[in-house]
Design a protein around this nucleic acid. Structure first.
Lengths: 317, 317
DNA sequence: GCCATTGATGAGTAATTGCCCATGAGCAAA
DNA sequence: TTTGCTCATGGGCAATTACTCATCAATGGC
């Protein structure tokens, strides 16, 4: 006898329960009796549907304050695309809100009929955004990673973005089989000379749109936490005026790439051109204020998804 | 107009509250203190956001479309229970998908704690469904067949459902020791007068839930293929406007039982009452479109398990 | 075969939410 | 100014939902 009550069947049930709860507006009691299960089980299915992201909620109202902040930011920094989500003062998350917004924006691009090249960086924020993506089929598009997923110890960083994206989005995807930082500029040249890497670099240069996180520096910043840089290297960078990084490319408070040996060791692809393509930074939070400010000041990105609190800082400084 | 700006400001607040509630996942209490209002006001804003459709919920799962079709069918035809499974365009099977779904639904009923009477019809679809049932013990329930399993030549039809069901489900079961069609209404009365048959008929009339196939007519339909009706009898029925049959009971395109001598010879139990019990039809496929349409239009069934393709036909005609 | 692990389940309970109602502010007409 | 109306408000309470815990069955490794 075939066993049917398995994971996929359970997800089906979760979808059904979630639909009945959120779309049809039934109570969990009603769902329980309709599906012949206990109320507790119905509750579990509903929360499973949420946890598995079968249920997507989006807010379809331009909050005036956010729109206004967005407009001001767009004007002040000459940005192509700005999206501001409300701040949640009680939350310490660095992704809530902007991840959903970024996912919507990614989805918008992927739904275009004409073939595009979509590039992604890496980082926790971007990972959170990609995790919000629904399943999409878009065989015409290509998705390329600007940066590698290999940690100094040889393992793949858990928040590598492009593989998570490949789970949800059916498109050709091009990972970058490199670390973020190598030991010397010579090693970088060597690695970049490999055929596979070269073709991936070539594709990334044609990106129509790029989504990147913006990293703060400091010993709590991602480059240190993930072990790409030692503490003393970081301190040296800070002394040299470093303000933030995108895909490992380190820039100063004016958003200019730092003329520093460490930038010679960055193995990521260059950030696609801001004058001919869209490069959207996704970041929020006090710790990143300085890095974000620098990135948009120096046009390392020409688009930004952030929250109200951050937007207010950017406008007032 | 001051009023207007106040209203839009209120919608703005509603959007913000809705965002905090659904996207950021805060409780209404937290939202209230964050926005400096009472909890009740926060609740009102959240429900306003829903009422004004600022909050859009979407279900990201293959069965989302099915649920929507099911909902529309339920409304349009006043059905109690609708289940739509995805169509498999590459398959010519008339049972794949709906058999599994029907089995799940049967299982759901059989798992109920309170004793029920479950009635079944016959047919290939139902047989396929019953073959999907796992072993269940439910000594409290009774399972009754609405229709006989004896072919005109005296043999038992291979797809008789109740005996297959008895293999999997441990419950009292009541077969109907009759043919589907007898030679005359007099013979029917005679057979129905037998004690054994009478008690089975009585049980079937108390059915809480009934699962039946919906048969199409025509010389390739089950009644002809299985030799219950001769070709010329079938042709005559078609001329009389017959559109489909359930347990041998033949109905026209409006789903009304046909006033025809052949219906006088049907030895099956009457289909249990649709106003006080659940009668679920299981059928899909182009050849059955007309029969299914008729059955739900005329309330021969008040529940339906079918596939997307069929559901779309039923909604568009 | 035996045991640890995983995961589902239902009961019980705490937390959260929805709703009714009395109140009072704001406002227009008398 | 008064009256009457509308509507937002918060208290109170019932309904609903979320969570914890103990149990149990299935699974997989030893």
């Amino acid at each position: 006898m075939v066993k049917r009550s398995e994971t996929s069947g359970r997800l089906d049930d979760a979808a059904r329960a979630g639909w009945l709860y959120y779309v049809a507006g039934r109570t969990q009691d009603e769902i329980a009796s309709a599906m012949g299960i206990s109320r507790q089980s119905a509750q579990r299915l509903v929360s499973l549907a949420v946890a598995e992201r079968l249920i997507k909620v989006r807010l379809d109202h331009p909050i005036a304050a956010c729109l206004e902040l967005g407009n001001q930011l767009r004007r002040k920094f000459g940005l192509r695309h700005v999206e501001i989500v409300p701040s949640d003062p009680g939350s310490s998350s660095t992704t809530v809100g902007i991840a959903e917004a970024a996912a919507s924006e990614i989805e918008r691009w992927l739904k275009r009929a004409d073939p595009i090249v979509l590039a992604v960086g890496t980082g926790r924020t971007l990972k959170a955004a990609v995790d919000q993506l629904p399943a999409i089929e878009c065989p015409n598009h290509r998705i390329v990673s600007l940066t590698g997923n290999i940690a100094p110890d040889g393992s793949a960083a858990y928040y590598n973005v492009i593989f998570s994206m490949a789970d949800a989005v059916k498109a050709r995807h091009y990972p970058m089989p490199l670390p973020v930082l190598v030991t010397s500029s010579e090693e970088r040249e060597l690695l970049h000379g490999q055929q596979l890497v070269r073709s991936t670099l070539a594709i990334s240069a044609q990106a129509d749109v790029t989504f990147v996180g913006i990293g703060e520096l400091g010993i709590d910043g991602p480059l240190c936490v993930d072990g790409f840089l030692e503490k003393d290297e970081m301190m040296e960078l800070m002394r040299a005026g470093a303000a933030g990084e995108i895909c490992g490319w380190i820039f100063d408070a004016e958003g200019k790439l730092l003329d520093n040996p460490i930038n010679e060791r960055v193995a990521s692809a260059p950030i696609p051109p801001r004058d001919s393509s869209t490069v959207i930074g996704i970041a929020k939070g006090k710790r990143k204020f300085r890095a974000i400010k620098a990135a948009i000041t120096g046009h390392q990105v020409n688009g930004l998804i952030t929250d109200e609190e951050t937007a207010e800082f950017l406008l007032s400084n």
